[in-house]
């Protein structure tokens, strides 16, 4: 699933780049990608590579919609206003505050371990 706001990010991920948007006017970092900066309303931005790590903010273990999948909510280390989701690939269960490392998937998504 991709739309006109997410396609660019998916392309970057497909190239192995872990990026978020950064406003060229006020430097606010944002994710998910949006054309306008919500702080200064500038439409000028660039992709900003950031460290592909974050901390686990929360997680669920699904039994219904994607049975057996642990889905994590990760707050990025170098962009703490940005939150990403993904599947948890580690053998042990996640815990709050734990450091998570991004994993690029074959279909241009980000999972975590």
């Amino acid at each position: 699933m991709s739309d006109r706001d997410s396609a660019g990010w998916r392309s970057a991920v497909a190239n192995g780049d872990f990026v978020i948007q950064q406003c060229s006017t006020c430097d606010t970092r944002r994710f998910p990608p949006r054309e306008f900066c919500s702080v200064c309303h500038s439409r000028t931005w660039q992709w900003q590579p950031v460290e592909p790590t974050g901390t686990i903010e929360s997680w669920i273990v699904d039994h219904t919609f994607a049975p057996g999948t642990t889905i994590v909510m990760v707050r990025l280390t170098n962009a703490p206003t940005c939150v990403m989701y993904g599947r948890w690939l580690a053998e042990t269960a996640p815990s709050a505050g734990q450091t998570a490392h991004a994993v690029f998937t074959d279909d241009a998504l980000i999972d975590w371990h």
Binding site: P32, S58, D62, T69
Partner: peptide, 27 residues
């Protein structure tokens, strides 16, 4: 619009989203 960044991981239902927030509250 958020679905583009959630649904591919199997994160699709309100039950999952509220469970995620509930966990944050619990921790």
């Amino acid at each position: 619009p958020e679905a583009a960044f959630q649904a591919p991981y199997g994160y699709v239902a309100p039950a999952q989203m509220y469970a995620m927030y509930a966990r944050a509250h619990m921790t």
